[in-house]
Computed example of a mutant assay.
Amino acid sequence: MTDFLRCGGGRLRRYGVLLLLAAMPALGLAACSPVKPFVPDPSQIPHGQGRLWQVDGPGLETSYVFATFDGLDKRALDLPPAVTEAFGKTEALVLEGVGDQYLKAEIYTEENLELSGDQTLDDLIGARSFGTLSWHMKQRQRLPNPKAKPWVMWVYLGGENFGFGEYKDYEYRTYEFQVTRLRSRADEGGMEIEGLMTEQEYFDIYDKIPLDQQADMLKVTLDRYEGLPPQTTKGRFYLDGDLARLDAVWREYLSWLQPETAATLDARRITDRNGVMVDRLLPLMQEKSIFVALDSLHLPGEMGILRLLEQRGLTVARLL
C-alpha cells in the first residue's frame, strides 16, 4: 500500500494537511445544475442571531467571541469593522486548536486510522455502500482503503459539512479559510495565539464513536449523495448572522441518522466540547483580554458556549 487512500495523494491528516476535506465537490458529487436550496425554519434557541459578542464579568478582562465560518465562501473573509475593532482591543487570539504538525504526524498514522484485526470497511457498511464509495472515488482515480475506519471516509467525503453542499458556492469559492486570515492578522500584530483543544482531542472526536455508529454516518452520507446532493445557502445564513438557521441545517442532518448515532455525533462534535472549551476559556479571560474565534455551531443554543458563559455569571452582549 503506497499510501492510506491508495491514490498517491498522501495520508489523511486533519483539516487539509494532506487531504481536502471539501471532498464532495472534488469527487464530482456536487452537480453544477442549480437546484432549489434547503432553507429550514430557524431553531428557536438562545443567541440564535449574531456573529460577534462582548463578554464581561467580575475579575475578567473584557473579551470577545466571534462566530467563524468553515465554508469556502470568500465573502466571509472580509471582516466587518466591528470585528476588526474588537480584534484590535485584545491581547490574544484563541482558537479551537492551533495545529501541531509534529503531534499530527504521531497521531494520524495508518495504524490509528485503520481497523484492527480482520475487520474491513466492507464488513461494516455493506457491499452496496462500499460499491458506491468505490465508484465515486474511481472518478478521481482513487480507491478506498478497505481497512479505513468509517469515520475517516466520512470526513473525506465531507461529512463535517452538515451533510449539505453549499448552494451555488462556485460563485464565491475560495480556498483561503477565515481562521487562517485571523491567524495571519494575529501574527502581524504580535498577538499570542492559543488553542482550546489538543490534537489528540481532535482525533478522538470521531475515533471514539462506536464503529456501528461510524458506519451509519458513512452509509447515510453515501445514500444522500448518490444522486444530486442536498444543498443549502450556509454562507448566506452565516453572513446574515443567522446561527439559528445554521443550527437547523445541522439538526436536519442529524435527523437522517439513527437516533443513537445522532445523539453521539452531536455530543462529541458540539456539546461535549462546548463544556470543555468554556472551562478552558475562563482562566484565559482572567489573565487578559482575548478574541475567541470558534465555529458557529458551538455558540448558540441552551448548551452553546454563549449560554454556558452566562450560566457562569458572565454578561454576554451582542455587538454584530
Rank of each mutant, 00 (worst) to 15 (best):
L121H: 04
L121S: 04
D123V: 01
I125E: 00
G126C: 05
A127W: 05
A127H: 10
A127G: 04
R128M: 09
S129D: 12
F130T: 02
G131R: 11
L133E: 03
L133F: 02
S134C: 10
W135P: 00
W135L: 15
H136G: 09
M137K: 08
K138P: 05
Q141T: 09
Q141K: 15
R142F: 13
L143M: 12
P144T: 02
P144G: 05
P146Q: 09
P146W: 02
K147W: 11
A148W: 13
A148R: 06
K149C: 05
K149V: 02
V152R: 07
M153S: 05
W154R: 02
W154C: 01
Y156E: 11
Y156C: 09
L157D: 02
L157C: 09
G158A: 01
G159C: 01
G159E: 05
G159L: 02
N161F: 14
F162A: 02
F164V: 04
G165R: 07
G165C: 03
Y170V: 03
Y170W: 15
E171N: 10
E171D: 14
Y172L: 08
T174K: 06
T174M: 00
Y175V: 05
E176R: 14
V179K: 08
V179H: 08
R181T: 09
R183Y: 10
A186T: 04
E194G: 14
L196D: 01
L196W: 13
M197C: 11
E199N: 11
Q200T: 15
E201W: 08
Y202P: 05
F203L: 06
F203R: 04
D204N: 14
D204T: 04
D204F: 07
I205K: 06
D207P: 11
K208V: 13
K208L: 15
I209N: 04
P210Q: 13
D212R: 14
D212M: 08
Q213N: 08
A215N: 06
A215T: 05
D216L: 00
D216E: 06
D216C: 01
K219V: 09
V220R: 05
L222R: 03
L222I: 04
R224G: 02
E226F: 13
E226W: 15
P229F: 02
Q231V: 12
Q231H: 06
T232W: 05
T232D: 07
T232E: 06
T233S: 14
G235N: 00
R236V: 07
